[in-house]
Amino acid sequence: MRTKSQNRKIAKAILYVVLLFIAFLMLVPFAWMLSSSLKLDKDVFIVPIQWIPENPQWSNYVKIWTKIPLAKFVLNTAKLTIIVTLLQLFTSSFAAYAFAKLNFRHKNTLFLAYVATIAVPWQVYMVPQFMMMRSFGLNDTHLAIICLQAFSAFGVFMMRQFYQGIPDELCEAARIDGMSEYQIYGRIMLPLSKPALSTLTIFTFVNTWNDFLGPLIYLKTESKKTLQIGLRMFIGQNSSEYGLIMAASVLSLLPVLIVFLSLQKYFVEGIAATGVKG
């Protein structure tokens, strides 16, 4: 008996060592980022690594705002992210209600159009999409990015999946009580679908905030650029300003970190739900 419990203790100990090692691997780049963001460029690569800088250069965090139009980049990104997320939430939950709870002509054909395009990666049609946007005069505008991101088939698909889990009887009862379809959507379905809406919010928020290729193709004027391409541009032009690059990186991570930590539960549940159902 004793050896068995001893074995178990050893196994537990090994487990924790492995875990700490993994956590170390995951966190080291972030720790290094934070620590370097407070250093002078010449001190970044000094060995042994100084994890806590002796002489923290808080000025890096001040300088970066004047070195590049960081405030403008943040503002652009925030604007795009908020508009895209709101549009995505509203239009996909609205459309998903019809697909999940209403019967109408051409329902299957229309839904098939959505399903079929989910299987086509954006990279396959980004070229004709760009040419189309350009012919609309939307090249180098924020509107192009909004149109590109806000009407994804994924959102409709996900919300429909969720609505199908809500019993039809609920809608039937409301119809008998004389509610219109819009009222059923607004007063019954929306409040019930908070978890799905939260998941969609986080996915859209993180994707739009971190999107790179879209803004890279469309946004040419510096004052219109998003945080990601602005940051990348700065890195390309000043690749040896390590301290500033890291300070900007830390700043670009913060919003996502905050959103992620506060809504983490929905994020994990969302992946699990879409993942298991396939």
Binding site: F90, T91, S92, F94, A95, Y97, A98, F99, L102, N103, F104, R105, K107, L110, A113, Y114, T117, V120, V124, Y125, M126, V127, P128, Q129, M131, M132, C147, L148, A150, F151, S152, A153, G155, V156, S180, E181, Y185
Partner: peptide, 30 residues
Amino acid sequence: RDLIAYSFIAPNFIGFAVFTLGPVIFAFIL
């Protein structure tokens, strides 16, 4: 009923058809 259903779908579908479905079809031709 169809009209009501279409009114639900329209805001998303119009954007989707113009900015996704159209380019997808165009990509194959291009």
